[in-house]
Nucleic acid binder design. Structure first.
Lengths: 356, 356
DNA sequence: GTTAGCACTTGAACGAGTCGACTGCTAATC
DNA sequence: GATTAGCAGTCGACTCGTTCAAGTGCTAAC
């Protein structure tokens, strides 16, 4: 990205002030203390005096990029300041040390278990960015059945297992007319499989409407399969894995003032998941800074997240949440890398086109 | 339970002091403020003067049941004081209002998904006791396979789905010699099922050692099935669902002093799960109070938990964690009820004896 | 064994005073 | 016109002393 690219939405700033703003944001991200003109002059080779910096900072404050806790205090970036920083420096790659190795060690491909992948990914991400991390399992917008299986439980109950196109499993209990031996259940399942393999919910409904073949058990299994698929499309069935709230609460903003309780409540409600609903296309990392969020509860925080999965296939979300003073470059790099990594794994579970 | 039953491990107390101690503990649980002799005299009909209460409280302090934040402050129960209270009042049934209805509304039997049950149970429990709640899915000490299924993915990869005796599903990717059509995969699965239905890990190993029938695919599937089962027995595969950290952090002990960060870190590490390892037999509710815990990190908290599931079958754990000043009677009642409720659900998934 | 009375202890709340860090402004300088 | 030195002014953080109310511990009387 070109150094001189300015945030299009923001009022123009001369080059020195742009550079200064970037330094202020990055210094504040690092130290968590309001940055003063003197410190800036001392720590960075700016070749101007503190007084000049003060003038520039007054200008930045005027334009809304920074604010001051009180009259005689240093500058603290405001949301537009962070936004400027993200647009300007967000594409830089700053993975934490040994991040790739850590990811590879933590995630076991052969498990074939998107839930386990998501859990591990959240753990690695949380410890890399020192904030809360969230990963969801995957889900397709359009569910297709691949195969079903009916397993005898006891008396008049059996377990219907549905393997979906993206290799995810779902199960329901079905109630039978009479106690039926496993052989017969398997027969019905096989017959069903020949008819419904690869079908979507809509196609299954058509089949059902056509009053298809088969007795009571066949019909029940078909009905329940349809119900599972439509639940799958309607409900948010993706499992969420959270990790690293402790990391986040160790940030200085929670030591005094900021309520840890509010942060904890975010875990239990669905604000985060709702943010994720508006998911970017794969490979794009999205950043929502403080007040930019539509979710009331998330206003005090920033969220960095990305979609992973197969294009037009099963997708999940991975991201991190923390105070607006978070290390955006590191967070974006880590999220980008993990999303790409998980995408590869998930795509390996997708059926290849010729078997579709 | 007889009112005069004293905690066997504790030094003897006359009846009035026992009653006083119970009142002190229950008052402190309710108000979270050190209880003074005057308040006790005013609020409860004790028929003695504050001075007498002071003498009794001095005795209770001497014996370690209560302590004082500072010289001129009221009494606060210490761990043995809570223990006394739990032994004396723990069996009383004090379910929160409409608790049964809330449980029934929240938990959907037909989903047949122990993970969904555990998630809902944790949510209901957390909001009932206003503390952190934890529920795990179930797991058998000895894993048995019920049925397997092999589903084509693409090229040389297939998905091995294992339905276990307790209706739980596990999956792994298996690598094939050559791209094999679904029909053939199903055939192998059927052949396998006739041999291995109901077998334990040990029995599967014997079968494998006998150099059983079948080609490469058959052997691979058998090997991976064995691996899944032994992982199941070796690893802690139970999924944990946590809920209500926000409730817990709203308790007054976290408003000032007590670190919310420490509490949050408990979520990420395995202290709680390790406590659960020492699981009581079903129907027994276990209470671990503060310093009684073997887990360093859990010392500042109390945990109330119970095992649920089928006797000698699949078991999980449900419990709640909070500051030592928690409502033990309510917590124990709620946990007891939920454990019984979940046990019923899980037992419905167990195979009936004749099909074993 | 119980109670009244009283001296004593202690934390919490409040306000005044001090200190240090930093800014904003003005006037001089490049 | 931009930059800089110098300086008065502002504000939070910290400390110290005071006051106040709550509650105990002890003693002597009942």
């Amino acid at each position: 990205m070109n150094e001189s690219t300015a945030n299009p939405a923001a009022p123009a700033l001369n080059t020195r002030r742009q550079a200064l703003l970037e330094i202020i944001v990055s210094d504040y991200i690092e130290t968590a203390a309001p940055v003063s003109s003197q410190q800036l002059a001392r720590r960075y080779e700016l070749r101007v005096s503190p007084a000049t910096i003060r003038n520039d900072m007054a200008e930045l404050e005027e334009m809304g990029y920074i604010s001051r806790p009180h009259t005689s205090a240093g500058g603290v970036p405001s949301d537009p300041g962070y936004r400027f920083y993200v647009e300007r420096a967000g594409q830089r790659n700053r993975l934490p040390r040994h991040f790739q190795e850590r990811v590879r060690d933590a995630i076991d491909f052969d498990e074939a278990d998107p839930a386990a992948w998501a859990r591990s990914a959240a753990r690695v991400l949380a410890s890399a960015v020192h904030n809360l991390a969230i990963a969801t399992t995957v889900k397709r917008a359009i569910a297709r059945v691949k195969q079903v299986q009916i397993v005898h439980l006891h008396d008049r109950e059996a377990l219907l297992v549905v393997v979906m196109q993206d290799a995810q499993l779902r199960q329901r209990i079905i109630h039978l007319n009479s106690d039926t031996p496993q052989d017969e259940l398997t027969q019905v399942a096989n017959r069903l499989n020949q008819l419904i393999g690869g079908l979507s919910t809509a196609e299954l409904r058509t089949l059902w409407d056509s009053g298809a073949v088969g007795g009571h058990l066949f019909t029940t299994a078909l009905t329940e399969t349809i119900r599972i698929l439509s639940d799958e499309e309607r409900k948010e069935t993706r499992e969420r894995y959270l990790n690293g709230l402790g990391h986040m609460l160790s940030q200085p903003e929670f030591q005094s003032g900021r309520s840890a309780q509010d942060a904890a409540e975010v875990l239990d409600d669905d604000s985060i998941t709702r943010i994720f609903d508006d998911s970017p296309r794969p490979a794009e990392v999205r950043v929502v800074i403080g007040q930019e969020s539509h979710e009331e509860h998330l206003r005090p925080y920033s969220v960095v997240y990305a979609t992973y999965g197969a294009p037009d296939g099963a997708t999940g979300v991975i991201g991190t949440m923390g105070p607006t003073r978070m290390d955006y470059t590191r967070s974006m790099s880590s999220v980008r890398y993990l999303a790409a990594f998980l995408s590869e794994l998930v795509q390996a579970l997708e059926p290849s086109p010729q078997w579709q």
